[in-house]
Computed example of a mutant assay.
Amino acid sequence: MEEKIIKHYSSFHNILLVGEGDFSFSLSLARAFGSAINMVATSLEDRASLAMKYTSAIRNLNELESLGCTILHEVDVYNINQHDYFKQHIFFDRIIFNFPHSGNFRHETQHWVIEEHKKLVSGFLGNAKYLLNVGGEIHITHKTAHPFSKWNIKNLAENERLSFVEEVSFSKYFYPGYQNKRGAGFKCNKSFPVGTCSTFKFSCLYYNFVP
């Protein structure tokens, strides 16, 4: 079987995507690979809620499923490793969380809002690390300008005993068809300007984690 690659991701990788909006990022990878049998894509919302929030969600989900993607709804990043599906000892080469956000879009510069965002990222990292294959990586794509730089994602990962691999610039144009979406609010179906942003890559320092 021929390997197909889109940026940092290979058709040979087992890939987990969390916090998907309209699932257009997952679909971009699946289309590049020509298959999604090695992909699991999740959202916090159920299917009906996604249909109400995003005009393209159901169409994207249907295409992903036709390509063999496993879709899981109502998956909370704070306890993802405790989900019944992942208790089956399923591990991944890449775990992706694009533009994590706690849901408060109005007060981004406020200290308490920044702390909410950091709590979300830490919760994700603290659970996702249990789902990594040896040599696997966790990827977080995130704005790097102020005030988002105050999230200190590298420090959050270090606190979770994760090793920093590299930071690379991100553009959604690397992923044809991807439309970044807000996770909450009345404008959730609209894309937001990403500005300067990066994908931060982390790996496990140890592989003897005990949940």
Rank of each mutant, 00 (worst) to 15 (best):
P211K: 06
F186E: 10
L27F: 05
Y206P: 05
A48C: 02
M39Q: 11
L205D: 13
F91L: 14
Y207Q: 03
F148L: 03
H89L: 09
E65A: 11
I90N: 00
N159A: 06
S198C: 13
S10V: 03
C204E: 07
E167Q: 15
Q82G: 09
N98D: 06
I6K: 00
S122H: 05
K4L: 08
C197R: 05
F105G: 06
N14A: 10
I95F: 00
E65F: 06
E116P: 01
I96N: 09
N60M: 10
N189S: 13
L67T: 11
T196D: 15
A51I: 13
T109M: 10
S35P: 11
H111P: 01
I6T: 00
N159M: 04
P100E: 06
V77S: 10
K150M: 03
R94Q: 15
G34A: 03
A41W: 04
N208W: 13
Y178M: 05
S11E: 00
N14M: 09
V121C: 02
Y178G: 03
G123L: 00
W151R: 13
S11G: 06
D46I: 06
S49D: 12
P100N: 00
M1E: 14
C197N: 14
R182V: 01
I6H: 09
H101R: 08
K150L: 14
F86Q: 11
E108S: 05
K154L: 08
